[in-house]
């Protein structure tokens, strides 16, 4: 496994007496695209702002490329491209002026590449920031984060306000960054985006990291559904006690059954094979379903996710 480029260890931050994040630990390898998921106020932005040395942690450690995010913030920021959750820029500058300004503050960038990014997002650089639509403002912020080809991209809800076409462009840029061996740390509410672009996902809730694992691995803990249609009715208790079945719902006259599943379906397939099967369908859960499950109000999420997958 590649050495971690982002290391967060027992990171804790509170605002006055109010909870920010508590004992958050994770490691992200170089070249990884990591999705950071959580509802509003869960602690995503707090974690990111500590990495960016905008906040100082109360406890724990955050390092990027082996450098302490706070003590070596200037060195760390040479490596980073950043999109804040609520970007605010000088309204009186044009998009072009803003990009030129940040290019200077970064010590110069490859102008040809910068112009390519402007082309890709189809950004009119002659308009003042205040005159841009929300989506165009977001484009400016995204371009300034990518324009110096940073080793690490830290993006806080980066596609908020972008139209589907530009979201696609953004997905492409993230894939290119990954292919170049660069690292992306991305927080998002758009789970399909995380599903498409990320290799691993962490879920944060109430300031604590409740789950972390590969996108595929997270799907393995899924609750999925299997619906089986038989040629004739089958006994009602045929599936109730099988391994992996958590719920059984008989449909129609008893010749069809919908099973809520978790884990392997081997026992169900073997039991179904004892009867004449007309059709069998399985509904794959989306990351959305998994995500929502962790945020159900029943408090079960953290319990289930006690270990890292």
């Amino acid at each position: 496994m590649t050495a971690p480029i982002i290391e967060i260890d027992k990171l804790t931050k509170s605002y006055g007496g109010k909870r920010g994040i508590v004992d958050v630990s994770l490691e992200i390898s170089e070249g990884e695209v990591f999705g950071f998921l959580g509802p509003n106020g869960a602690g995503k932005t707090t974690t990111i702002r500590i990495l960016m040395a905008l906040l100082r942690a109360d406890g724990g450690r955050a390092q990027i490329a082996g450098l302490d995010a706070w003590d070596k913030s200037v060195e760390v920021k040479r490596l980073i491209g950043y999109v804040p959750g609520e970007p605010s820029l000088d309204n009186n500058l044009t998009g072009g002026q803003i990009l030129e300004y940040f290019a200077h503050l970064r010590g110069g960038v490859d102008k040809a590449y910068l112009k390519t990014l402007i082309e890709r997002f189809d950004l009119d650089t002659s308009r003042k920031f205040r005159q841009y639509s929300t989506g165009n403002k977001r484009k400016v912020v995204l371009i300034q984060a990518f324009m110096h080809r940073p080793r690490v991209l830290i993006l806080d809800e980066p596609t908020s306000g972008l139209d589907p076409l530009n979201q696609q462009e953004f997905d492409g840029m993230v894939r290119e960054a990954r292919d170049d061996g660069r690292t992306v740390f991305l927080s998002s509410h758009v789970l399909s985006e995380v599903e498409k672009t990320c290799t691993r996902v962490g879920i944060i809730r109430d300031g604590r990291l409740v789950r972390i694992g590969g996108v595929a691995e997270l799907k393995d803990i899924k609750r999925y559904e299997i619906t089986i249609h038989f040629a004739r009715p089958v006994p009602a208790d045929a599936f109730a006690r099988l391994e992996g079945v958590s719920d059984v719902e008989w449909l129609g006259d008893g010749s069809a059954v919908r099973l809520a599943m978790q884990g392997s379906a081997d026992a169900v397939i073997k039991a179904a094979a004892l009867h004449p099967v007309v059709s069998l369908t399985s509904d794959e859960p989306s990351l959305e379903d998994i995500f929502l499950r962790y945020y159900e109000g029943d408090g079960q999420g953290p319990k289930e996710a006690a270990g890292v997958v």
């Binding site: 040395a53 950043y82 605010s88 503050l105 300034q144």
Partner: peptide, 14 residues
Amino acid sequence: DNGRLEIILSTPQP
């Protein structure tokens, strides 16, 4: 207050 320094502070400026 308005977070207008945030992106500036994400550049390698002390």
